[in-house]
């Protein structure tokens, strides 16, 4: 008995201890979101106390040195850039996802998937550099003159194009998974009734996959909302509500990133920027929770 007990007791103790520590770590990590919300809220409380939420969200006056913090130009900037990105990305991504899922040979799929993973891995600064080198001059020299307007090229459109490419991987990846999860019997039934492939896709597969595809798009939108560096480099950063896609804009993430240096010397400035981060976090959380919930339900229904 003795030798056995000698090894068993410390081993079981170790097991117990490790379990408790790991449980604690898991709970902590899973609650990180709440900690982040609390931290950012505490930092943004000063500006929330001295300004009404209505003023902060709907005023266009951004004059930190006079204590005026109206986020509307930045919120609109984010919406414009994201809108353009979605308009470009959604059709392309859906067509690609449908092609890869329904039409392409599995060998083609195995080739294309890693390439899309590579696209997902490219750092946002590199997208920014590319945008400055290719997209901005293209808009300045080709797009703007053809509409007979002047643009420096640093515009909503440039930000939207760069962002669209950055969210390709998310939308394609998730919607491809959703499309693949549609059972084959459904397709076969439709094809057996004499429908063409496209009719099958349009009337049967897409209808079944619709909630998942919507979730994929929402995930893309939330990725676009928060993207910082690449957009910051090509969008012009003028704090005015844009009135066309060729105008410059100043999205929220760019506002936060651009002013980290001076924010500590102006009263309430850091608080206002942390509020911007909090707004961003809350909106993105909402989008993410909604789309993840849809995807989770789909995953369960397939099983």
């Amino acid at each position: 008995m003795w030798p056995l007990r000698n090894t068993l007791v410390p081993r079981r103790l170790k097991d117990l201890l490790a379990g408790k520590v790991m449980l604690l770590l898991t709970i902590l990590a899973a609650l990180l979101v709440l900690v982040m919300i609390t931290g950012l809220y505490l930092k943004s409380r000063p500006v929330l106390e001295s300004h009404s939420l209505h003023e902060l969200l709907f005023s266009t006056k951004w004059r930190p040195f006079r204590g005026q913090f109206g986020f509307l130009p930045f919120i609109m900037g984010t919406l414009w850039v994201t809108g353009v990105a979605i308009v470009i990305a959604v059709p392309l991504c859906l067509l690609t996802a449908i092609y890869l899922s329904e039409y392409a040979h599995s060998r083609v799929r195995e080739w294309v998937k890693p390439l899309i993973d590579i696209l997902a891995g490219i750092p946002s600064v590199v997208f920014g550099v590319w945008g400055m080198l290719v997209v901005v001059p293209f808009i300045k020299d080709v797009v703007a003159p053809s509409f007979k307007v002047f643009s420096t090229g640093y515009s909503v459109l440039a930000g939207g194009i760069v962002l669209a490419i950055m969210i390709f991987p998310v939308i394609i990846h998730v919607s491809l998974e959703v499309l693949r999860a549609v059972p084959n019997e459904v397709r076969e039934a439709s094809l057996a009734l004499g429908a063409t492939r496209w009719q099958t896709v349009k009337r049967v597969v897409l209808r079944k996959a619709l909630p998942g595809v919507a979730a994929a798009i929402v995930l893309g939108v939330s990725r676009a909302f928060g993207e910082t560096m690449a957009v910051l480099m090509v969008v012009g950063n003028v704090p005015k509500i844009p009135s066309s896609v060729l105008d410059p804009a100043y999205p929220l993430p760019a506002l936060i990133a651009n002013n980290y240096g001076e924010m500590l010397s102006v009263p309430l400035y850091d608080s206002a920027l942390m509020l911007a981060a909090l707004i961003l976090l809350l909106v993105i959380l909402l989008f993410n929770i909604a789309s993840r919930a849809v995807l989770l339900r789909l995953e369960r229904s397939v099983r």
Partner: peptide
């Protein structure tokens, strides 16, 4: 679920939180 949601949080927010 929590990690999936957290995975969607943009890096600028992590930067701001790290700063706090």
């Amino acid at each position: 679920f929590s990690f999936d949601v957290l995975n969607g949080v943009p890096s600028i927010v992590f930067g701001a939180f790290g700063f706090t």
